[in-house]
Amino acid sequence: MMSGVTIGQAAAFVGVTVKTVRHYHKLGLVEEPERDGSGYRRYGSDELLRLVQVRTLATAGVPLAEIGALLDADPGQFTAALADVERRLTERIADLTARRDTLHRLADGDRALLPDRACAILDRMAGLGLGPDYVAAQREALVLARALVPEGFDGFLTQLEHGLDDPGYIELIRRGREAETWEPDDPRIDELATAMADHFLAHPTLLGNPTSLQAWTKASAQYRLINNHRGDQAPISARLTALTEAKLRSAGVTVPRR
């Protein structure tokens, strides 16, 4: 009577493919049984047990390269090794969960690139009727600011929140939007820049806290990229910003150079 089963039967019993069994042999995880008189390799209970152990550990997430040493370890080493595998799996789960959450946020537009606090600010801008073009430009500026000057991002959000709480500031923003229809040499541009600078000086929280200002000052190159974003699409607004900043510098306020 033949003892043992063929490789196909062994694979089926254990729940893997023949190719997988041969791969385990190649890696040295399971020894190949000797051929019988008919030239077939017959798998006995020892080989089947080893196959089950290897498959179970592999399914649990243990790298194949580590399974051999794990199965040959003493009980204490085995327990410690499993704890290490569990730790790495937990880290992978956290990483995969974060990736899944990002995919979910992608379906929600802004939330893929910006935190909830920034999205709430954009929602408030839209609710105040500042217009889709303005909100879109601010969205892009926030994405750039978060990526290029992360240490100054929270302070930037705080500035925006103070601004949205200030009716006078909102009115100046609306006037700035209207200015895009003015001629480049319209004297009202300089007048509006003066009004903006005066408002900032009268309400210092709109300028940001010292930590945030320092972060932006150190990142002058990044500031220029963010501040000049869409400048070609809104030239009057760009000029208005430059004039306002110049007036603030004249008043002793530290503002990064454009």
Rank of each mutant, 00 (worst) to 15 (best):
L106G: 07
T102H: 13
A83K: 15
F78M: 10
Q53P: 04
L82D: 09
V143C: 10
D101S: 10
A73V: 00
A73L: 04
L113F: 14
G44F: 08
F153V: 01
T158S: 06
L70N: 07
R88N: 14
V30Y: 04
A65V: 11
L57T: 07
F13V: 12
I93T: 13
G68D: 01
G15C: 09
Q138S: 13
V135G: 03
G68R: 09
L142K: 03
V85G: 08
E32S: 14
R87P: 00
Y43P: 00
T17E: 10
L157S: 01
P33K: 12
R87F: 07
G39I: 02
R105L: 03
E31M: 08
A65Y: 05
Y24G: 04
G109S: 13
G109H: 12
A80H: 11
I67E: 01
L130I: 08
A145Y: 02
V135L: 05
L157D: 00
V62L: 10
R100I: 02
L71P: 02
V135W: 02
A112H: 04
C119L: 03
P132D: 13
G15R: 09
A136E: 10
A69C: 04
F153G: 01
A73K: 04
V135P: 00
L29Q: 02
A81L: 10
F13C: 11
E86I: 05
G37D: 12
G39P: 02
G127M: 05
L106V: 10
G152I: 03
K19C: 06
V62P: 01
R55K: 15
G61Y: 10
Q138P: 00
R99F: 06
L71Y: 13
Y40H: 14
V18Y: 06
R92E: 15
A112C: 04
A107H: 12
